[in-house]
């Protein structure tokens, strides 16, 4: 049987706590560490192991079993120094995949230079997403998949309602590809209450029609996507 992946989450503030709980929900083994007795007690009912320890004490981290983990998430919210020190200790313990929750852009830079595999700065990422959702409400989701290419979930522009993918000429006009179409289909349950169910056409063909309220999942480079976004609100 495949061995479950083991994670250590060091620092159980709001972010770390939720990361630990979500990892357990995904069936991962989680070691949760914090220097606060109360929060460790609270999380112990959810995670595989929970213990009180000082993340800046190398011996304590080793004894806690951090070196047996595949990945370590450092989410220490007190100060940058503690977070960096904990990261270096974890690195010395031989952990290759180290994720650091950043407290600032400087923290991100330092952590990256010192060898963090991934740096997350949730406040900044959330702020960007929030602004996107306010400025362009018809762009539902945007994921950068490479330096030049993005995956975008976009409301079908009015211009192409009722047209097939072929007739919409979306590939020629905008240089993007529709890789899925998401739609809400009306249903009625046994009690007579109406509801909607989501249907996804994962491999839309050239003769599939695009309708009002459809959500298009498209892939393309920045420029053509910006052109498409321009017509979404028309």
């Amino acid at each position: 049987m495949k061995k479950k992946k083991q994670f250590a989450v060091i620092g159980l503030g709001i972010f770390g706590y939720n990361v630990a709980v979500e990892l357990v929900k995904k069936n991962m083994q989680v070691l949760a560490v914090d220097n606060d007795n109360e929060v460790v007690n609270e999380i112990s009912q959810f995670v595989t192991h929970a213990l009180v320890a000082d993340a800046t004490n190398e011996k304590a981290m080793e004894d806690a079993g951090v070196s047996d983990c595949d990945s370590v998430i450092i989410s220490i919210g007190e100060n940058i120094e503690t977070s960096i020190l904990a990261m270096l200790i974890v690195k010395d313990l031989g952990i290759r995949n180290i994720v650091v929750k950043s407290l600032s852009q400087w923290h991100s830079k330092v952590a990256t230079k010192l060898g963090a595999s991934t740096v997350v700065y949730p406040e900044l990422e959330m702020a960007k997403r929030f602004v996107d959702s306010v400025v362009t409400p018809n762009i539902l989701e945007q994921i950068k998949i490479s330096k030049d290419y993005n995956l975008v979930e976009i409301l079908a522009p009015k211009k192409i309602w009722g047209k097939t993918i072929r007739n919409s000429d979306i590939r020629n006009n905008y240089g993007i590809n529709i890789i899925a179409i998401r739609k809400q289909v009306p249903i009625i349950d046994n009690s007579g209450q109406i509801d909607v169910k989501e249907e996804i056409n994962m491999v839309p063909g050239p003769d599939d029609e695009i309708n009002r309220n459809d959500v298009l999942v498209v892939i393309g480079s920045e420029k053509p996507l910006a052109k498409l976004k321009g017509i979404v609100n028309e």
Partner: peptide, 15 residues
């Protein structure tokens, strides 16, 4: 309340 729910559902389905 059902009428409000139904209108809400249509609005949600319309994004």
């Amino acid at each position: 309340a059902e009428a409000y729910y139904n209108i809400g559902l249509i609005k949600e389905a319309s994004n």
